[in-house]
Amino acid sequence: MDTLNISDKAYSSRLLVGTGKYKDLTQTREAIDASGAQIITIAVRRTNIGQSPDEPNLLDLLPPSQYTLLPNTAGCFTADEAIRTLHLARELLDGHSLVKLEVLGDLKTLYPNIVETIKAAKILVKEGFHLMVYTSDDPIVAKQLEDIGCVAIMPLASLIGSGMGILNPWNLQIIINNAKVPVIVDAGVGTASDATISMELGCDGVLMNTAIAAAKNPVLMASAMRKAVRAGREAFLAGRMTKQPYNASPSSPINNIIASSKNKAA
């Protein structure tokens, strides 16, 4: 069976989804179910002191027993903040060590700070975390993160939440060609074709949040994304035809065409 294999676990779904930006927890759950995603990201934030104790908790709706929860370090701008966040996340999820590392460079673009990302990755890998790391589409950085021991490389297609799709498929292809660990496009996916293109290039998976949550019909978009990732993966495995930009190649036979009214001879 064609599975996504991340640190010794096999997943049938190659679509990973975030849990942010939904209307409410009910919509979150419906969209995730429609997407078929098994790996879902969560964020770690301060609890409100003195808030209603009966308020439903995300982990009640999306229990670790049913999903692989991937805590992220969204909002962290230094290696230290990311490391502290992941320590808390590991405690929150009873020692679970598969996590998403992201260290951001600025609030406006949310582009990754590569220096701090690498610094954090070195420390976290030594502490036994299994890191899926958000990075730019720089092929050298991707390889460095792999060499440090990250279990998956997650290059952005375009800015987080921008919906701009894959801006540099060439770099993405280089990263895929060089990687021995899974490459999962993370950030910038906007619609179904973006996900399909990622998979056709040879990505092992696609991670998205805004593309689904900010669609006019998130549950329908989640369903589309499920199919889009599947379609792209099958197309990749099927081996596409060669591109021929300058010469047509007819699909119907070139002989036994009936005589035209001008040429009476066979």
Binding site: G18, K21, V44, R45, R46
Partner: peptide
């Protein structure tokens, strides 16, 4: 002290 919970995020 920092007291945290899991919330939705991407």
């Amino acid at each position: 002290l920092e007291i945290v919970i899991a919330v939705g995020g991407g």
